[in-house]
Design a protein around this nucleic acid. Structure first.
Lengths: 156, 156
DNA sequence: TTCATATAGTACTAAAATAGTCCTATATGA
DNA sequence: TCATATAGGACTATTTTAGTACTATATGAA
């Protein structure tokens, strides 16, 4: 299945938690308590998010982390990229790889196209959207919804 | 990075190859030669695609595989699901998992929303689109394209 | 009827990616 | 000066993925 890593999942949980009160400073230990994720893991995620400039870190006593931008200015595509690196669904679209099949590969360009579509979808969802419970929100994704999709929608 | 497995990548290459001449029968050995992917691997992919009803298999001498549907009736979401299982970006959206954090997890619904957006994007691209070189095609994805996206577009 | 060919299914091994933990260094406020 | 908190790196165990191999079954043709 197409999926993000557990760490990325934690990252969204943590960022959503922080986004509830964007002006406060959160220490790793605070976040462990409120999310139930183990401290070393929380710590690892926070470091990655800080390195990617999605969080600002403050060292020392009374230190902690805060959002680098407003909740509506950080989107899911950025979060995934912060934890997992550049978003690209195949090897040949993320690295200057030496693909042995390259000469006979006709579809590299098509994967770029698919990547773009997926990226746009991920980019449309921000932390501000994540803070609002799903029932009440209208996410800014302009796409046709088919029957299956609408059935899924009912589940929430 | 968000990505599909190598086998899924092979699957798109193989299906695209077959889609060029949808009425012919292709043996695994034919496909090895034209794609450069190792025979046991090709064989594995073909079996998975057949099991998922994207290909129809014919046993015995002069046997082989053919497309189960017209190229424009098989989309990338189906191909990914055939190889990797149901598309869902987090554990809690694909399985009846016993997530320990569930009680304090506020964003399961939001991930469903993101999944839906990604799924719709993947569903919009069919084998018929993959057969056409990227320069000439117009893919039916109705989404706003931002600056970055358009820059990517130029690359092709 | 026999045989070469081709898929079906399953099991197994090796390699790579991921998750999670731990330790030491550095910064900062009281 | 010390308790607190992040920074950075190294390390291990686990899981996933990739690739291979083997046996069974189906089919067309000589």
């Amino acid at each position: 299945m197409l999926r993000v890593s557990k760490l990325t999942d934690y990252a969204t949980v943590i960022l959503t938690h922080i986004a509830h009160q964007p002006d406060e400073l959160y220490a790793a230990s605070d976040i462990t308590q409120s999310t139930g994720v183990a401290l070393p893991t929380v710590s690892k995620v926070l470091k990655l998010l800080s390195k990617a400039n999605l969080l600002i870190s403050h060292r020392g006593a009374k230190g902690g982390y805060e959002l680098a931008k407003k909740p509506n200015e950080t989107n899911v595509a950025e979060v995934i990229a912060a934890i997992e690196g550049p978003i690209g669904m195949t090897e040949c679209t993320t690295s200057e790889s030496t693909c042995e099949q390259e000469s006979s590969c006709e579809i590299k360009g098509n994967w770029n196209l698919i990547n773009r579509a997926v990226y746009t979808a991920l980019e449309a969802v921000t932390l501000a959207d994540m803070v609002v419970p799903v029932r009440q929100q209208e996410v800014n994704v302009v796409m046709p919804m088919n029957k299956e999709m609408n059935e899924l929608k009912v589940e929430n």
